[in-house]
């Protein structure tokens, strides 16, 4: 994990360690909640293993789970998917 990866979260560039998950990258970038529930409440990563779907975000335009996806250079991540 020596190298860094550059990606954009909601249009803002962030630099995170290579090899980390998108969920971790979002947390490192300061995002505590990454989606709004139906009642407007904030939600963030929870189960960590692709089960609860709370950490879903749009990665390069496609809905994906932050906990399963790995960061990659140039990735465009949009929260509140």
């Amino acid at each position: 994990m020596s190298t860094d990866v550059r990606l954009r979260v909601d249009g803002v560039e962030v630099v995170v360690p290579a090899g980390c998950s998108v969920a971790a990258a979002l947390r490192l970038a300061g995002h505590v909640s990454t989606r709004r529930a139906l009642d407007g409440g904030g939600r963030g990563a929870c189960c960590g293993m692709g089960v609860c779907f709370e950490c879903r975000v749009r990665i390069n335009g496609v809905e994906r789970l932050g906990c399963l996806a790995r960061v990659a250079d140039g990735m465009e991540i949009v929260c509140d998917a």
């Binding site: 995170v16 090899g19 980390c20 998950s21 969920a23 971790a24 490192l28 990563a45 960590g48």
Partner: peptide
């Protein structure tokens, strides 16, 4: 859940 998140870089 938090354990595996941490293993994948969650701070």
């Amino acid at each position: 859940g938090l354990q595996v998140l941490v293993k994948n870089g969650w701070p």
